[in-house]
Simulated scan of single mutants.
Amino acid sequence: MRVIGVNRYGGPEALEVVEVEEPHAGPGEVRVAVRAAAVSPTDTFVRNGDRAEQQRVDPPPYVPGMDAAGVVDEVGEGVEHVEVGQDVMAVVVPKGSHGAYAEKVVLPADSVAAAPAGASYAEASTLPMNGLTARLALDRLALEPGDTIAVTGAAGAFGGYVVQLARADGLRVVADASDADVELVRGLGAETVLPRGDGFAARVREVVPDGVDALADGALLGEAATPAVRDGGQVATIRGWDGTGDADARTRGLRFHPVWIVDYARERSALDRLRRQAEDRVVTLRVADELPAEQAPEAHRRLEAGGVRGRLVLRF
């Protein structure tokens, strides 16, 4: 079976086609014949060695990929919500040669849900990881309808889903955008769109003088963005930042919620809810481009060059 992975860490050119043993579904598992795998920034960490400490116990190749869409081709004992031949999407937690950049991947059944009706495989593959991470962030914040949330990185996949899901939850959304992305972010549902970058927190205070109830920091602004939040408010972060080093935020009683997709990787009900919201056009499935799986190095080069809106997707 073909996978796209690395035997040695490095730049995009380190990605190569590797033959590995074909996996099979055991009890409580589903095997998916992958048709599309979305390319995300976290995939580059598997490739370049930033996750080497976590991977050290496993032999190479190290296969990236946290999002897959395809067709169920094996169902293990005890699995009843999907069947062979069904179109599905899935969230994948990479480990060693287990990743979404593969012709076939075996997953816990609760990491797999029906694909949105009418969506292509490429479109379906853009939803699981970023959609679930956005859902997790909002669930941790547990805001009430009418509350206000600020979103940085709103034109990105995570930020874009936060904007749309927050609006669906009845929240007021203040988001950032570059000049080129203002209409995109406004179209996603942000009530107020402010220039991105330095000074975002001050600009938020101009429109919400008391500060927003919460911040979802998809742009990794860290303590540069926390002044936008009211005293006693909340911050959802990605990549693990818990407010360490932000003395002012701690003094003002801000509560931090680092969100990790592994906490929702088996939340099938949440994934299926996203499926319904995609079918209802509550969330938008954004594909930047599709490339053959063998062109994974090019996909990583384009991703790391910046400016990609939506997800690059590998076809299998």
Rank of each mutant, 00 (worst) to 15 (best):
H257K: 08
E206Q: 15
L138A: 08
A190V: 14
V82P: 05
R309C: 06
L165N: 07
G131Q: 12
D139V: 09
L188A: 10
R140A: 10
A90F: 02
V259Q: 15
E279R: 07
D179E: 15
Y161D: 03
T42V: 15
L254N: 11
E294Y: 04
A166R: 07
V229A: 05
P64D: 10
A157L: 00
V262L: 07
V185W: 11
V82Q: 09
D73V: 02
A68G: 14
A278W: 09
G5F: 02
V163R: 01
W260T: 01
R167L: 00
R167P: 00
E22L: 05
A305Q: 15
S40P: 03
A265T: 11
R203P: 13
L184C: 12
G243R: 00
A25S: 14
A150Y: 10
A157F: 03
G232K: 08
D179P: 14
N7A: 09
D246Y: 03
L138Q: 01
V235G: 01
Y161I: 03
E183N: 08
G253P: 02
V105F: 13
L141G: 01
P297W: 10
G10I: 12
A115G: 04
V151N: 01
L165G: 03
A270S: 07
E191A: 13
L127I: 10
A100V: 10
R252Y: 05
Y121R: 02
N48T: 01
A134I: 05
R230I: 09
Y62H: 11
D43F: 10
A202D: 15
L254I: 02
I4M: 14
V204F: 10
G65Q: 02
A134H: 01
E77P: 03
A115T: 05
H98Q: 12
V20E: 02
R196W: 04
A117F: 08
L132G: 07
E83N: 05
